[in-house]
Design a protein around this nucleic acid. Structure first.
Lengths: 249, 249
DNA sequence: CTCCCGGTAATGGTCTGACCATTGGAATGG
DNA sequence: CCATTCCAATGGTCAGACCATTACCGGGAG
């Protein structure tokens, strides 16, 4: 009689790597493991949990994909797998893939991004430092001096991520960044599909709107900033969303 | 002369499993792989990319953690690893861990949740079906008949997730759900720390607010719904955030 | 005493080869 | 035609080995 006997209606057979993931998660959730702490060596952990090193490695990869673990080779303090907190890359990849899989339609993503933009603008208007403002101003300049559409888009992304960072909300900033990155490809497709005149008009209007948002933030006017920012994202998307180059003939 | 020779200033040595992840991601991003498609068998993929099966498995775990791949045993159509789109669980775990790691302070998370709530309420007020409304009403009832605080909290979660689902925005709903789940533990700690009288008052007020939100949604009044929902989350958190049971003496 | 240098050990990274449990489907027999 | 049996393919797991990188320790040179 095997322990793993599959009870047909029962819970799916527990994978060995899940027990390792659970071991780590449990210690993170109750605080025994904190950022910077070192995990036992893979060989030790495998022995302790009575699994093979291969499944320990699978578990580590799984948690690494969430930005929670960071393995590094070598002996002593510097080596070993440590607990980290780098959700940005993880969120970006997750969102980009699921957008590509058409699980999240672009309109939905833009709706969320609009809501976040509003939040960021309001918070930034109350918290932004002079350094934040200077950085955002430099991004405005970057857009104005951009020589191609990709350059402009990069500046635009930097501006909005900068706004989110200035808001002092890490989750909002990381999410905004992830959404921007996830939308980069489809956005650029629409951007490059515009004819020269439409593009020039759009850039001019966007610059004006950026300017007014920055002004509201600089003068610490949260109410104005949130309205302007929300309207900005909304209208920009309205003008872009139609210009899709058909992708699947 | 090794191909992997570490160029000191160069980019970090590319891990073998990353090439496998890249292989899959590339095909998802350009549409060659879609939801439901089957990946080559691990052994085949390993041979094709000239890596060991172990690293292929690590890559699969990594993408599985993002909700993008779903392996299953067996032969024929049913077996094999397939492309999936289940970001909900992935987002939940990611957020929960990073909240536990104190990378995202509770106040920040609640701010984002407030923004999402506002969005969901507005959208729900324009799109909610009778079925959605009936479901939310049942969650209201669930809260009223709850015998303990956990039961109330579960109903509350269900109500707000239901609102997000009714909004018809999958990303907003999944994110709301992830945040709710990530906050469950710290929220319940505060919830249970309230004395009986404060708790009774709070529950009564929350119920009233839920009622007004649901009313605004039912009468298709987006402007009212978004204001009520935002105020609801904000005041609820204000009343709860102070009641923390100190955790680390 | 200090500094440099080599060795050593520990770590994650990778590979190989094997066996198991599950599952679908093909071959077989009624 | 249907039920049964067997087989092959799949992911899951394990054991053992070797490699590259890195810190640390100890000894020798200055």
């Amino acid at each position: 009689m095997k322990a793993r006997a599959a009870a047909p209606g029962g819970p799916a057979a527990p994978r060995a790597y899940e027990t390792v993931v659970a071991w780590v998660e449990e210690r993170i959730l109750d605080g025994r493991l904190q950022v910077g702490d070192q995990l036992p060596a893979e060989r030790d952990l495998a022995a302790r949990l009575e699994v093979s090193r291969a499944v320990v490695r699978e578990a580590v990869r799984s948690l690494q994909a969430q930005g929670v673990l960071a393995p590094s080779v070598g002996a002593g303090r510097a080596g070993g797998t440590r607990v980290s907190a780098l959700p940005s890359g993880a969120m970006t990849r997750l969102l980009r893939l699921h957008v590509a899989l058409a699980h999240f339609p672009l309109d939905e993503v833009v709706e969320v991004r609009t809501a976040l933009e509003r939040l960021s603008a309001r918070l930034a208007a109350t918290r932004a430092t002079d350094a934040d403002l200077a950085l955002m101003r430099s991004h405005l300049e970057q857009m104005r001096t951009a020589t191609d559409r990709k350059g402009f888009n990069d500046g635009d992304t930097a501006f909005h991520v900068g706004l989110a960072r200035a808001a002092g909300n890490g989750l909002a900033a990381d999410t905004t960044e992830a959404i921007r990155e996830a939308l980069r490809r489809p956005l650029m497709e629409r951007f490059t599909a515009l004819d020269e005149e439409t593009y020039a008009d759009l850039v001019q209007d966007l610059d004006r709107e950026h300017e007014t948002i920055l002004e509201a933030v600089a003068t610490h006017d949260p109410a104005a900033a949130e309205v302007l920012a929300e309207a900005h994202v909304r209208t920009a998307w309205r003008r872009l969303r139609g210009s899709a180059a058909t992708m699947a003939p």
